[in-house]
């Protein structure tokens, strides 16, 4: 079927998410909580767009809106721009020192002197990506805590979690770089827990925690752990392939 986004005709499969269709057609819709690997959160609200469906206009969340009819979409109507501006003002009030938020608010012309207080050292926008990543991985070391305006993300009791393997997937997936990982003298500290980093057998660089490697070993069901960092793994694979080609 066909839908129209900002005047452009786009092919669409029934049930496909609107954001996906837009991106495929190089139409920009801003997002913060969207990740192709972990889709469907719909928490940041930045991707809202206006649609016209059988004569009715409404505002929908494009990352979770399944296209069912041949609709017309407006990704930056005045109403949408106004909503995004307010959302970014709210996010800026929450995390005024965050670079990602600051960049976005400048883009939408939100002034930097706002009448709201607080938000000194906050960088988290509670999008939920970190929690979902940890869940998908199978560790579930962190979760959302409380509700309403006191909601936050943390480990149980704010203490080092027995389930945390220090892999840093949460930090990797965070859209605002809000999760702190510190690496110092072969020790990685994340979520208040310290991990000894294992050195690569080939290049000697500390690259992963023991817990991380043990976790993947168990998941893959293999007997031994390969102590190679990502780049060395690639290099070793490259060498192996080269050997094969040379022999052939």
């Amino acid at each position: 079927m066909k839908i129209i986004i900002d005047g452009i005709v786009c092919e669409a499969e029934k049930g496909e998410m609107l954001l996906k269709i837009a991106r495929r057609n190089h139409i920009h819709i801003p997002t913060l909580c969207h990740s192709d690997a972990l889709p469907g959160l719909g928490s940041c609200r930045l991707c809202v767009v206006e649609i016209l469906d059988r004569g009715r206009r409404s505002v929908v969340t494009s990352c979770i809106y399944p296209v069912k009819n041949e609709i017309e979409v407006f990704t930056h109507s005045d109403k949408i721009k106004s909503i995004r501006r307010n959302l970014l003002m709210l996010l800026y009030a929450r995390a005024p020192q965050n670079e990602t938020i600051d960049r976005l608010r400048r883009e939408y012309e939100v002034p930097d002197n706002i009448r709201f207080s607080g938000g000194k050292n906050e960088h988290c926008i509670l999008c939920g990506l970190c929690v979902k990543a940890c869940q998908e991985l199978g560790t579930s070391a962190i979760s959302t805590v409380n509700r309403g305006i006191t909601k936050k993300v943390s480990t149980p009791y704010d203490e080092p979690s027995a389930q945390c393997i220090g892999c840093g997937s949460c930090a990797y997936v965070c859209p605002t770089n809000a999760i702190k990982i510190e690496e110092h003298n072969g020790v990685r500290t994340i979520w208040n827990k310290e991990f000894q980093l294992v050195r690569c057998a080939r290049c000697g660089k500390p690259f992963a925690t023991m817990e991380q490697l043990e976790f993947s070993r168990k998941k893959l069901g293999s007997d031994h752990i390969e102590l190679l960092c990502e780049s060395c793994k690639k290099a070793v694979t490259g060498e192996k392939l080269r050997d094969i080609y040379e022999r052939v």
Binding site: S140, T144, P156, A162, Q163
Partner: peptide
């Protein structure tokens, strides 16, 4: 008890903690 329940139901402690604070 929260820990015990987590082990009994095989549900991550973080999830139970999330429910208990919600």
């Amino acid at each position: 008890k929260l820990l015990e329940l987590s082990q009994y139901l095989d549900i991550p402690l973080s999830k139970l903690y999330s429910i208990a604070t919600f």
